[in-house]
């Protein structure tokens, strides 16, 4: 595309916003045409389309990102909005509060620690460790955590996608090996490890699995958001 035309179009944020909307809608359309493949979430299709479009028209990512911040600013209120489904799930938390209060801190802490530990053993840099730490947390909360830790948000997004996509086959294989049929357990594990991508899959299994997945997802998000930055700061002062 000629440079003067590109600079005319990108003079306002509307070009970046429009491009994002178009890629999102097209990604969803393709996802439905491909009959909802669980290994290729709609958001990945949309992101690939958007990245290809940016390269094709020669728009640098930093300029796109500036314009798109008109959309991403809404992430703040959207995260606050998650308080509504959380409130609606409170009866379910009460019903199973004992096993959940025992399991959640251990499982959510390990979800972060396994990945950080393995990456650290393999010699990854501190920035990479900070970017992987929130890999099992739902994106709006994970972005806030990663900014606190000083990680790279783009790498976090990639980590979220990989984690969410592989959680689905891992949960189904391990559940079969452990002979687990309880939909509450399978749903909770999908949401705790695979955040929104796992939760969508759980809703395809059954409404009960879906409800427990969104419970697992929100509790993991809150637990990690409250404890990980504090733990990180403590480790930082010691070392």
């Amino acid at each position: 595309m000629p440079t003067d035309m590109l600079s005319t179009l990108t003079a306002t944020p509307l070009f970046a916003v429009g491009l994002t909307l178009a890629a999102y809608l097209l990604g969803n359309l393709l996802f439905k045409r491909l009959r909802n493949p669980s290994w290729l979430p709609a958001i990945l299709i949309a992101a690939l389309l958007l990245a290809a479009a940016l390269v094709a028209i020669g728009l640098p990512y930093s300029i796109y990102q500036q314009g798109a911040s008109w959309l991403t600013i809404l992430l703040g209120p959207a995260t606050v909005a998650l308080g509504m489904p959380l409130y609606q799930q409170l009866p379910r938390i009460r019903e199973l509060w004992q096993p959940l209060t025992l399991c959640l801190p251990i499982a959510a802490a390990l979800a972060a620690c396994y990945a950080i530990g393995i990456a650290w053993l393999m010699g990854a840099s501190p920035t990479i460790l900070a970017s992987l730490a929130a890999k099992s947390v739902t994106a709006p909360i994970a972005i806030g955590i990663t900014e606190q830790l000083g990680g790279n948000v783009a790498l976090l997004m990639g980590a979220l996608l990989v984690t969410g996509v592989v959680t689905i086959p891992f949960v189904s294989v391990v559940a079969r090996l452990l002979k687990i049929n309880d939909e509450r357990i399978i749903g909770f594990a999908l949401g705790l490890n695979g955040h929104a991508i796992g939760t969508v899959r759980a809703f395809e299994l059954s409404p009960t699995a879906g409800a427990f997945a969104s419970l697992g997802m929100s509790l993991t998000g809150i637990f990690t958001a409250l404890l990980l930055p504090l733990a990180w700061r403590l480790i930082g002062t010691v070392s």
């Binding site: 004992q98 096993p99 025992l102 399991c103 251990i106 499982a107 390990l110 979800a111 396994y114 990945a115 950080i116 530990g117 393995i118 990456a119 393999m122 010699g123 990854a124 990479i128 992987l132 890999k135 099992s136 790498l155 980590a159 990989v162 984690t163 592989v166 959680t167 891992f170 949960v171 391990v174 559940a175 452990l178 687990i180 309880d182 357990i185 399978i186 909770f188 594990a189 705790l192 490890n193």
Partner: peptide, 24 residues
């Protein structure tokens, strides 16, 4: 390192979660 950490880390944490919940 990133890919191994994500794949192996997620597999281990899925095993831990399912095993813990099954017991509890």
């Amino acid at each position: 390192a990133i890919i191994i950490a994500l794949l192996l880390g997620t597999l281990l944490s899925v095993i831990t979660t399912l095993w813990l919940l099954q017991r509890l």
